[in-house]
């Protein structure tokens, strides 16, 4: 089970911050989440949303293990 984390507006949209999902890849995880919540699925693929696996940014697809931590990171703003 990969540990999935949502941040910022994605968390508000989904109504959860963290959960466990069985998925072998990021693309499988996206499909699973989109099937369950189409609005979230669309937002996860929205402009400027980055993905980190085990706290490292990844582009495109990547395999996941049972211990993976996957974070969806919408556009960032500090200061």
């Amino acid at each position: 089970m990969a540990r999935v984390l949502l941040f910022g507006p994605l968390r508000d949209l989904a109504g959860w911050r963290e959960r466990e999902v069985a998925a072998a890849s990021i693309s499988a995880l996206r499909t699973f989440l989109a099937d369950e919540d189409a609005a979230l699925g669309a937002a996860l693929g929205g402009p400027g949303v980055q993905v980190a696996v085990d706290q490292a940014l990844v582009r495109g697809d990547a395999g996941l293990s049972a211990a993976s931590e996957v974070a969806f990171l919408p556009p960032m703003s500090g200061g």
């Binding site: 941040f7 910022g8 507006p9 990171l73 556009p75 960032m76 703003s77 500090g78 200061g79």
Partner: peptide
């Protein structure tokens, strides 16, 4: 302001809103 991993939300009398760069 534009690249660091922070997410910023304003709360006020008219509700709340996320701030983007």
């Amino acid at each position: 302001k534009s690249k660091a991993p922070f997410w910023k939300k304003e709360h006020g009398p008219d509700g709340e809103r996320w701030i983007e760069p």
